[in-house]
């Protein structure tokens, strides 16, 4: 165990912030520290918060953390807030803290903003690794807020034990609600901005979507509750905190907690393998060989599948031996 990981386990917040940077940047030191901390992980409840941009995710997280600490003042809560990286400059403006004023300087709260750095699933590539660091450091729960999600940013489902999908009135009709994707991953549906006029229509759309998804209710089955909130004044937040608590109890009782944990670890392991694979690909398919084949593709002399096959057999397999 290094000094840095020891300091993290001792509750040193500066060391924690440093280690998160090392892990986020995928440095050797970070990878080693993470492996050293791995035994201390796995106890924390990971809660995902996702939904369209402007639905009120950050404001909801702000009140939810306040509410959790009101119910259990001894807890330490961490927030990972992911915002998109600019595809052009590689830079990012991470603005989720703006809505988290109430918890910004609470000693029981640790907030970390992450840029997505090119990842497309609504999270950054190393979000799970960062959550493991916070897990080892004793934060429970950890709340992960995704980038403003449209329909296919569902990666959070394989990373969180409980997923809150935040909706707001006026964002789309009931066909939007019926589409596959983000609605299907909800364990708890929050209808935020419930002081808006169209809230009844929005709730009806959500209800009919749920009725289609859960045609018959079996004993012991979890059906996502629909909860109305006004995150800017805290209305309905106590019910959301209660639902989060209930969902955690349900996961433990039904054995789904272990199932979700296994999914998380599998995603992590597969991700690391893919990354290794990608590195090899870059190493063994030499740039000039790639260019040569690519030139033929540009000239329409070689079709994409055939080109990929040729690069794989003639370059990758040959060079990696």
């Amino acid at each position: 165990m290094t000094d840095l990981t020891q300091a993290v386990l001792n509750g040193d917040r500066r060391a924690l912030a440093r280690l998160i940077t090392l892990v986020e940047n995928d440095t050797g030191e970070g990878q080693q520290a993470l492996d050293g901390l791995f035994r201390d992980t796995g106890k924390t409840h990971v809660i995902g918060v996702t939904g369209a941009s402007g639905a009120g995710k950050s404001s909801l997280v702000n009140c939810l953390v306040e509410e959790i600490l009101k119910r259990e003042p001894d807890k330490s809560v961490a927030v990972i807030a992911v915002d998109p990286t600019s595809p052009f400059s590689g830079g990012a403006v991470l603005g989720d803290r703006i809505r988290m004023r109430a918890i910004a300087d609470n000693p029981h709260v640790f907030i970390r903003s992450m840029a997505s750095r090119g990842a497309l699933g609504g999270l950054a590539q190393n979000t799970q690794a960062v959550s493991l660091v916070l897990d080892a450091a004793g934060y429970d729960p950890i709340i992960i807020e995704t980038v403003g999600a449209g329909q296919s940013e569902v990666e959070i489902a394989s990373l969180a034990h409980s997923v809150i999908v935040v909706e707001a009135p006026g964002l789309g009709d009931d066909v939007q609600a019926a589409k596959a994707g983000i609605m299907e991953i909800a364990d708890i549906l929050v209808l935020n901005k419930a002081d808006k006029a169209e809230v009844d229509a929005a709730e009806m759309a959500l209800r009919s979507m749920l009725a289609m998804g859960f045609p018959s209710k079996e004993e012991g089955m979890w059906v996502p509750p629909i909860l109305r909130t006004v995150a800017t004044n805290g209305e309905g937040i106590a019910e959301v905190a209660a639902a989060v608590h209930e969902h955690s109890a349900y996961l433990h009782q039904s054995g789904n907690w272990q199932k979700r944990d296994q999914i998380r670890l599998q995603v992590l392991l597969r991700g690391l393998l893919e990354k290794k694979h990608h590195q090899e690909w870059e190493e063994f398919i030499h740039r000039d060989e790639f260019q040569q084949v690519f030139d033929q593709v540009i000239e329409r002399e070689l079709a994409p599948h055939a080109a990929a096959e040729r690069l794989y057999t003639d370059s990758f397999l040959k060079n990696s031996h």
């Binding site: 830079g91 990012a92 991470l94 603005g95 803290r97 703006i98 910004a104 300087d105």
Partner: peptide, 26 residues
């Protein structure tokens, strides 16, 4: 951001304590 940096923006009316907490955590 356009120069490729990651900018954490915290909004108006920050106390000195909030500024330093954000700098530390981030």
């Amino acid at each position: 951001r356009d120069a490729g940096m990651e900018v954490i923006y915290t909004g108006l009316r920050q106390t000195p304590e909030m500024v330093i907490q954000a700098a530390l955590q981030e």
